[in-house]
Amino acid sequence: MSCGLCLSDSKAVSLVLVTAFFFYFTSEMLLRQYALAGMGSKDLNVNKIITRLPEGIREKVMARITKGRLLDQLAAAKTDGEYISTRIALASMETEDVLEKTYLEISERFPNNPESMSSFLFFFRGGPRMRQVSVADYHLFIGRLPEADRYFAWEAGLSKIKGTGGDNLDRIEFLRPLLEIEPKYKDYLRLYVELTEAAFQEGATAIENRSRELEEACEKLPTLMQVMERSDKEKSGKQNKGSK
């Protein structure tokens, strides 16, 4: 069969087309992967491109991209902590009602997870909401957390009390369990100072004296940061030994 016949025959041309399309899609896929791999090492910021969009649609596009990224993160979440933080970040982009429902779900499903702290804080002294977290509930939550996360929970709770107009008695009520524990980090000093001050103003001498004792004890302790750094060094040291 001559070349001329091949080309004038529509069926043959169609067959050639199908084969060509197969090679086209295959080679395109390979070239696309190469182009994307080349860009992976570069600082191609999507945000930079979006800033060139017209002002009217820029924010909407950015919000959609942010939401999309969070949905991708949610799908890829491997730990409860990752799941909780992403769920809350996603809900923060929705209405107040959705956010409250998400906080409620998180606080009920993951009561032992440090990432649930924002959920408990939301309902702690939060006014009329779907759930009320009392001081006792919040203390229970702190008790379930790992040692390293407890300080932050105390700190965040105290800030919430101050932010919601709590008085000295509220502060004493909240911080009182600290008198029963043995502080592990110097950071607790701040909390004991608060407690001492509130107790002094309210004339609660016993609490004030005990709090001062613990303040002195805290002075001799390392900070949480120092403990974590030490722990990291020990871990990397062990890993180095293991690799040798």
């Binding site: 080309l7 529509s10 041309v13 169609s14 050639v16 087309l17 084969t19 060509a20 399309f21 197969f22 090679f23 086209y24 295959t26 080679s27 395109e28 390979l30 070239l31 190469y34």
Partner: peptide
């Protein structure tokens, strides 16, 4: 990459020419 590029170019050429011929 070069091989893919060549296949890409040739397949596109064939597609365009085939449509043109049809």
């Amino acid at each position: 990459v070069v091989l893919s590029l060549l296949v890409y170019a040739l397949s596109l050429t064939v597609i365009f020419l085939a449509i043109g011929t049809l």
